[in-house]
Design a protein around this nucleic acid. Sequence first.
DNA 1: TAAAATAGTTTGAAATTCAAACTATTTTGG
DNA 2: CCAAAATAGTTTGAATTTCAAACTATTTTA
Lengths: 155, 155
Amino acid sequence: MNSTSDEIKDDYNFISEALIDIYDQIMRIEESEIRKSRFKDITAKELHLIHTIGLHDRKTTSEVSRVLKLSKGTLTANLNNLEKKGYIIRMINQQDRRIINLGLTSKGRLLYRAHYAFHRQLVESCLKEFDGSDIRKMRQALVNVEKFIDEVSSK
Amino acid sequence: MNSTSDEIKDDYNFISEALIDIYDQIMRIEESEIRKSRFKDITAKELHLIHTIGLHDRKTTSEVSRVLKLSKGTLTANLNNLEKKGYIIRMINQQDRRIINLGLTSKGRLLYRAHYAFHRQLVESCLKEFDGSDIRKMRQALVNVEKFIDEVSSK
DNA sequence: TAAAATAGTTTGAAATTCAAACTATTTTGG
DNA sequence: CCAAAATAGTTTGAATTTCAAACTATTTTA
């Protein structure tokens, strides 16, 4: 297919606008879907934190606060909430007892998987009409976004 | 190109993970880029509000609070801040004097355009290696995301 | 034209965030 | 070896953000 540079500009505009609006909607819908399930006490932010803690990584509090760009104090408060609600556990690291390793409880792992499944469903439903080569290109476009973000952050 | 169903699954996983992580990073980088410019007093949330108010729409407070899913009280507080900082103006609607129409000041319009330009730059930089037909497909994928969100929200 | 409805603001309470001070532990270097 | 410095995480107090409910002003309804 041939495209004029005007058509491409128009697509760029459309894609820019769509991107600006979509983030927020996805966050909101994630939260509202999760709240319809058995996990009624979870906010979008907590979902994000659960995802960052991950299934098997045993990350430390410092690592997580660095990744999420939250102060250590804020993270401590968030972890207290999730611990009270039974989603995470703190494990004192026996090699270095200053360090707390974070893990998900079985309830936390269920939530992690439900969240992930929802995302997968979104991706599958939106890409099902495309073939393998198209999907590879979409993947590359996302890699490019990450590259762009890295370049801008480090300049 | 042929792709096995395993390769496609792997791409889906990659795309899911990338999507989950990317939102947050874009929000943050948007804020930090804007703060490097003359707009040092603006947060990511305020940027989002400025974008929603838009260049020429004269939206009402209620419309904006519905779109952003903020309570009317919260929006009033946010608008007070942006008004104090000189980015927006409130205009009493002369047909119905209960209604406030919102507009951007010239400073607000400058900020709107700077924000939009940054997004355009991101999109252009990430899509420059693709041809018109590829870009049309990416656009379609975003339309699908919006469709998916609408379906899930309305069910 | 009085009552109901609507648009937006104010209010007070709860939640979230941050930076700085603090506690506990480990590492460093004299 | 041990005191000082560094590090990991928590606590604290203040600032900010958010919400729902009560409120004010205006318009619509019946």
